[in-house]
Amino acid sequence: MIPASFEYRRAGSVEDALGWLAEDPDSTKLLAGGHSLLPLMKLRLATPGVLVDVGRVPGLSYVRDAGDHVAIGALTRHRDLEISEVARAFVPLLAHVAGQVGDPQVRHRGTIGGSLAHGDPASDLPAAVLALDATMVADGPRGRREIAASDFFRGFLETALEPDEMLTEIRVRKAPSGWAFQKFNRRAQDWAIVGVAAVLDGDPRVALVNMGSTTVRARGTEEALAAGADAAEAADRASEGLEPSSDLHASAEYRRHLATVLVRRALVEAAAARG
């Protein structure tokens, strides 16, 4: 439970952080809330040589109404997102999901940027931003770029961010109604065994938690919905083409079954919420 030795630097600005990242991108990690990275370091599953603490960089914690979308600073803590009036009004799915992450300690420390950049398929927020078709804004030595959520999650703990880039903002188009989130776990603070984020506002989008090596969309379900299938029929295709893992908490077979049940429930709930 003691991490391997590392160097700690506290960034005062995004420029500080990017500068230090550029020095040795492969063995440098950004630290925000620390609730994903530090446990891995304590178990010595992650052994970065340099830790750049961006937790006190000013100006990166906000939830703003930006017209057609909501802009969220990467250092916004889960709890601040959960209770944000702007988020609740325009992206209620995201506010709700932020309130489902971990436990109160995690929600008061963890940040949306940290959670997304970590790229854990068992995390809730990646599925939410995928279902909401959000856009990630990354800054780096080659300037700023925007990455669609559907291009962002690449593999297990792997995202489209380059090692020298920093996620700074998340832009989420407004989706005030027709959403649902289903999370199946054993204990309140656990990662989901399977989770479902569904948005029926516009083209139906359904994203799944913990149904593969990365956060994924239930393409079979989306296709079925587009073709006019009802919730149960669409849900039957929830795990089509997916390879969920078997672990201590659930077999792959059980995960597929849960995905079907939870997608159906999410679709029914989202449709009812759309009115």
Binding site: R186, R187, A188, Q189, D190, W191, L248, H249
Partner: peptide, 11 residues
């Protein structure tokens, strides 16, 4: 404690 599931008050 992610794998050994000690229940808490919420359960």
């Amino acid at each position: 404690f992610a794998d050994y599931l000690v229940p808490a008050a919420s359960e």
